[in-house]
């Protein structure tokens, strides 16, 4: 019991208490005038206001879109990259080093670089122009901007998923792989038909983490588009931030954050159960 105490204290201080305050704020009328003063309890008024406005549902749809793109990237590309990188060698080591570097880059840095690259007059459009293709409004088209930013997030998240999957692949007993080889299965057939089924629990956990990541992705949107053009990249975290810290309606901002958390909880519960079943195994 004594040994768990520090963890419990930290958990209460940095997770449970802020969460309690967030929920308390979501049922209060809180603005700059009373953020340090008395919070007037207004029941579910904030929830009714937020849920009855179409903005929230559009933001939720956009967030789900980002989650779908991240899932495809992290699971499909992550598996391909993890498979390639599970073969040792000097090139693998170099690529792994670069991937860790990419993963560790602060979003404000990588986001700014991507913003420059994807600008209407940026390097990528310059390249397209050189090869005779039309320029693309990556960040300024309302139809493309969300997917462009989602692509940037996927790029930043890919090293993590590739490394996780690579770790899972390396943990598969060698004799299983060798047996498949003796039966005449090629490398990719072995990967898809032998290794992939064995990675099921890893992929499941990675999928849940990916969805959680999508629902808390804010930094790239903030750096690259600030929710624009118009409202095209207004996801739930962006809407929550703008409501609380640009509009200074902290109560409504907290309400959107709580609703986001409820979405996340839908995925967090199976995650916790997966972790438990992993532990039991």
């Amino acid at each position: 019991m004594f040994f768990v105490a520090p963890a419990v204290v930290l958990l209460v201080a940095f997770a449970a208490y802020p969460l309690f305050v967030l929920i308390r704020m979501s049922v209060s009328d809180v603005g700059p005038t009373n953020i340090v003063g008395t919070w007037h309890f207004i029941g579910l008024a904030n929830y009714i206001q937020v849920l009855s406005a179409p903005d929230l549902w559009f933001s939720a749809l956009r967030t789900l879109g980002v989650a779908a793109m991240l899932l495809a990237s992290n699971l499909v590309l992550g598996f391909l990259a993890g498979s390639i990188l599970s073969v040792g060698g000097r090139v693998t080591n170099v690529v792994l080093g670069i991937m860790v570097f990419v993963w560790a880059l602060p979003p404000i840095v990588s986001g700014s670089v991507w913003k420059f690259l994807l600008d209407d007059n940026g390097a990528i459009n310059g390249l397209l122009h050189v090869v005779g293709l039309a320029r693309v409004s990556w960040l300024s088209s309302p139809n493309l901007a969300l997917w462009s930013v989602a692509g940037i997030i996927a790029w930043a998240a890919l090293p993590f998923s590739a490394l996780i999957i690579r770790g899972g692949l390396l943990a598969i007993p060698r004799d299983v792989i060798e047996a498949a080889a003796l039966d005449g299965a090629g490398y990719w057939r072995t990967q898809f038909q032998i290794a992939l089924p064995l990675l099921r629990s890893t992929m499941w956990i990675l999928a849940i983490l990916t969805v959680l990541y999508a629902f808390k992705s804010f930094d790239f949107f903030y750096v690259v588009t600030q929710g624009g053009p118009g409202t095209a990249t207004n996801t739930l975290p962006v809407q929550s931030y703008n409501t609380a810290f640009s509009g200074f309606n902290m109560g409504l901002g907290a309400t959107i954050a709580v609703i986001s958390m409820l979405f996340v909880a839908l995925f967090a519960i199976p995650y916790v159960r997966s972790i438990r079943s992993e532990s039991d195994e």
Binding site: F14, Y17, P18, L19, V21, L22, R24, M25, V30, I35, V36, G37, T38, W39, F218, D219, Y222, S240, Y241, A244, F245, M250, G253, A254, A257
Partner: peptide
Amino acid sequence: YRILQGVAAAAAITVAL
């Protein structure tokens, strides 16, 4: 207590501030 609430609320909504 209110001050603590204010600080905790800021921490809960944003990590970038």
